[in-house]
Design a protein around this nucleic acid. Structure first.
Lengths: 141, 141
DNA sequence: GTATTCATATTCACCGAGGAACATTTACTC
DNA sequence: GAGTAAATGTTCCTCGGTGAATATGAATAC
């Protein structure tokens, strides 16, 4: 269960600390993938395998399924934490998420995300805004 | 589990390095076959046997099955990694996939693919494009 | 039948990059 | 203020990619 926001710097070798509370769940390794927004998504190994399973057993046409698989698996990386609880971000993912030197690690329950700080601030505001609207909508019933 | 993209050169003997993280799963050997697109597909031996099993136990008419078998098995090659973790690409497969000197090795979860670099760049873009569309489709519900 | 050449396959050697460990400093807690 | 834990910085060394060299075998010529 990944919760909370954590701000970190990237060192010159491209390594990022993983929040200490997240580390236990990542003992077996983690998978970094392209996020649906401009961010990196990180899964614990077990969670990722579940994901992959559901994806490949979907009811898509084979050719579409192959392409979806390529988009998913070719852009993902299986990694491990180092002794200090850091993970090295592949350059391709960094560029995709526009992460330079500062980033925010964001819990998302079953996975967590890594954001460029400015982008995250905007996304966070938008997300909260939308959340309040949804709650209001529920209360109006 | 094969993930990620890796770029390599082919040496003058037609050998390609296999990504180190892939090698463990290929100890027993690997099978190279024609890809569904313009690429080479590589399976670990165990995975290939599973594939072949499902193919031959399908509910096709015997004559069609024979031809499918020919197409599949005649064009496939069972190979081993050399001491340095390289594999020698058969010329027929190289020509089929239009691989000259640069190529990209691409993880596809249960197997991996080898692409001509330019072709892969295009395919990658198309695959991502399609993936975003699928996700959008899901979100519109 | 022997020798030579070509082709293929296997092994060796170098250099650079990546990974793992070590070390330091900062922040927080008791 | 001391102790602990985490963030940050650095070094070292192994591993892997690339090019070259050596062996093995087949084919042809003499």
């Amino acid at each position: 269960m990944f919760l909370g926001e954590y701000e970190y710097k990237i060192d010159d070798k491209g390594r990022v600390p993983v929040p200490p509370k997240f580390r236990r769940e990542l003992r077996e390794g983690l998978v970094l993938a392209l996020g649906p927004e401009t961010c990196i998504v990180a899964y614990g190994l077990a969670e990722w395998k579940k994901m992959a399973e559901t994806l490949t057993t979907g009811s898509l046409a084979p050719s579409k399924l192959r392409r979806l698989g390529r988009a998913t698996f070719a852009t993902a990386y299986s990694l491990n934490l180092d002794g200090q609880g850091r993970v090295a971000l592949p350059i391709t993912l960094r560029e995709y998420a526009r992460i330079e030197d500062e980033l925010v690690v964001v819990g998302a329950n079953t996975c967590f995300e890594m954001w460029n700080k400015e982008l995250w601030v905007a996304e966070r505001a938008a997300a909260l805004e939308q959340a309040w609207q949804i709650i209001e909508g529920l209360e109006r019933r």
